[in-house]
Design a binder for these strands. Structure first.
Length: 563
RNA sequence: UGGCCCGUGGUGUAAUCGGUAACACACCUGGUUUUGGUCCAGGCAUUCCAAGUUCAAGUCUUGGCGGGCCAGCCA
């Protein structure tokens, strides 16, 4: 298998790790982690994070842990835990033995909470949520201290233990860190670190009715696992002081958190909440709908892990909030697919062609190259006969100057077969072209004219009788606008959903060589694009997803009005 | 009128201790071609602005301007 694995460009994180290795800051260790919350499916944005954390660890012979940040049982499910593992493996990464769950640390976390209380650095607050919100202050004004802030250690200990014992209903009390209600950083204004949630957990079942918050879990989990470089996205920058505060005040091993910008892609949404909404509201067929930017959707669409990894290597890593052109993703996809996909001929919108001077009942087996990029892929036979199908858009009755395809009186080449000339056009009562009458030149067998005459166009085709029926699902961007969040008035991002993101072509014909192809098999349909077999395929009818179209200079010319 | 972070071509990135802007995508030209694909050649930026330091500034300093994030008992 030929693939193009590009090297990741230098970036500030790599530079930092290289420096740490040089100075021996972590005794030569590199331990990173990928910490998903199992509350949804992984998407292309996660792929970037995965490539960074797993990639850097691998580069330095270190390890990258898979750790589920499962501290909120209200949102988390086993289904997500399973899909996440599957997707990371598919992407090509391996966490080995290092599969962890923050929930495995709940006992330790509880002990640390007790420690903070004993040290006078945490207290139980009886204020309701609204009151806590009110007294937190605003971005420009300091917060007010809770009246419960100075309870005795004994009372705090007692209350916290009773919270754990299930004596209080949800929302009635929380444990807060005692830091600084006047801090300009909202995260430091006595953050809530434990809340009461009488909710069964996918892993710990009903053992707990209090659950630690992210801030009280993440850094400590990193610490327990002796992570060296805790790489996360920019929105956690403001949380780093808190991360550091817990490590310092607990007196535990202290990893380095470093933030980078998350991926934004044009015409795409990468927000778990919004992706969830698309699924729940039925805008797409599920998490693995081929239009979704989820790894499962992209897999079903026909993306290769290599293409995604290459993409991630090329977008770089910075602290700048950028929006990457989805064209780059499509480029790395084509680049990979071009090298590995066997070529095949398929007609998506069939137009019948009858070769009048070709013997009735005769079928010839034409030799076709499987992959011009890979001689080792060999050749195959494609049946040719008197009645064929070509693409409707490959014929024009009154073509513009630069149209190189078939038209009345024009001669073109049928790929790997013969030169044919259109002699007549058959129409229905409505005036639609329903059939072409043509003649062929027997001397051009294989596609070359012995007399050296040239044709401008080469068309793909299938034999009417020998070809197989198929359905093709043609996808376009899920959102019409480059920035789907750009809406007017009260609209939300769904207002930018592309009504033509899925176009089903149900009367397609494919050459017989693909018979029985298994779901996931990829092909290039010559002159059209890359396609893969969808699991919806049946014995009677293959269903294909268009992974990505070939570059189409002709379409571009038409669009630019240069025709 | 708080704090933190960021600002290099249309886009995304690169540029060792300051040394005279590189790569990719996109776009435009042209060439090759039995895929209007691939491939090949060429074109496309005075680094947000303004001062300052320096022989020399994308890199350092100061001041502007612009953008992002933060007021969940989400992560």
């Amino acid at each position: 298998m030929t693939t193009t694995e590009s090297k990741p460009a230098p970036n500030f994180i790599r530079a930092m790790v290289a420096e740490d290795m040089k100075t021996g800051r972590w005794d030569g260790r590199v331990v990173t982690r990928f910490p998903p919350e199992p509350s949804g499916y992984l998407h292309i944005g996660h792929a970037k994070a995965i490539c960074i954390s797993f990639g850097i660890a691998a580069e330095y012979g270190g390890t990258c842990h898979l750790r589920y940040d499962d501290t909120n049982p209200i949102k988390e499910e086993q289904e997500y835990i399973d899909s996440i593992k599957h997707d990371i493996r598919w992407l090509g990464f391996d966490w080995g033995e290092h599969e962890y769950y923050a929930s495995d640390y709940f006992d330790q976390l509880y002990e640390w909470a007790i420690q903070l209380i004993r040290d006078g650095k945490a207290y139980v607050d009886d204020q309701p949520a609204e009151e806590i919100r009110h007294t937190r202050g605003t971005l420009t004004t300091p917060g007010r201290e809770s009246p419960y802030r100075n309870r005795s250690v004994e009372e705090n200990l007692d209350l916290f233990q009773r919270m754990k014992a299930g004596e209080f209903p949800d929302g009635t009390r929380v444990l807060r860190a005692k830091i600084d209600m006047a801090s300009p950083n909202m995260n430091m204004r006595d953050p809530v670190i434990y809340r009461i949630l009488h909710q069964s957990h996918p892993r710990t079942a009903d053992k707990w009715c209090i659950y630690p918050m992210y801030d009280f879990t993440h850094g400590q989990s990193d610490s327990i696992e002796r992570i060296t470089h805790s790489l996360c996205s920019l929105e956690f920058e403001d949380h780093r002081p808190l991360y550091d505060w817990f490590c310092e005040n607990l007196g535990i091993y202290h990893p380095q958190q470093t933030e980078f910008a998350r991926l934004n892609l044009t015409h795409t949404i990468v927000s778990k909440r919004k992706l969830n909404q698309l699924v729940k509201d039925g805008h797409v067929r599920g998490w693995d709908d081929p239009r979704m930017p989820t790894l499962s959707g992209m897999r079903r669409r026909g993306y290769t892990p290599e293409a995604i990894r290459n993409f991630c290597d090329r977008i770089g890593v910075t602290k700048y909030n950028s929006i990457t052109d989805i064209g780059l993703l499509e480029h790395t996809l084509r680049e990979d697919l071009n090298k590995r996909s066997p070529r095949v001929m398929a007609v998506l919108r069939p137009l019948k062609v009858v070769i009048e001077n070709y013997p009735e009942g005769q079928v010839e087996e034409m030799d076709a190259v499987n992959n011009p990029e890979d001689p080792a892929a060999g050749t195959r036979k494609v049946p040719f006969s008197r009645e064929l199908y070509i693409e409707q858009e490959d014929f024009m009755e009154d073509p513009p100057k630069k149209f190189f395809r078939l038209a009345p009186g024009r001669e073109v080449r049928l790929r790997y077969a013969y030169f044919i000339t259109c002699t007549d056009v058959v129409k229905d009562d409505a005036g639609n072209v329903i059939e072409l009458r043509c003649t062929y030149d027997p001397a051009t067998r294989g596609g070359d004219a012995p007399d050296g005459r040239k044709v401008k166009g080469t068309l793909h085709w299938v034999s009417a009788d020998e070809s197989l029926p198929a359905e093709v699902r043609r996808y376009d961007h899920l959102f019409t606008k480059a920035n789907p969040n750009e809406v007017e008035g009260r609209q939300d991002f769904t207002a930018n959903l592309n009504p033509d993101s899925l176009k089903v072509l149900s009367d397609c014909r494919v050459e017989p060589s693909v018979v029985g192809a298994e779901a996931g098999t990829r092909y290039q349909f010559e002159r059209q694009g890359y396609f893969c077999v969808d699991p919806d395929s049946t014995g009677e009818k293959l269903v294909f997803n268009r992974t990505v179209a070939l570059r189409d200079t002709w379409a571009k010319m038409q669009k630019a009005g240069k025709v």
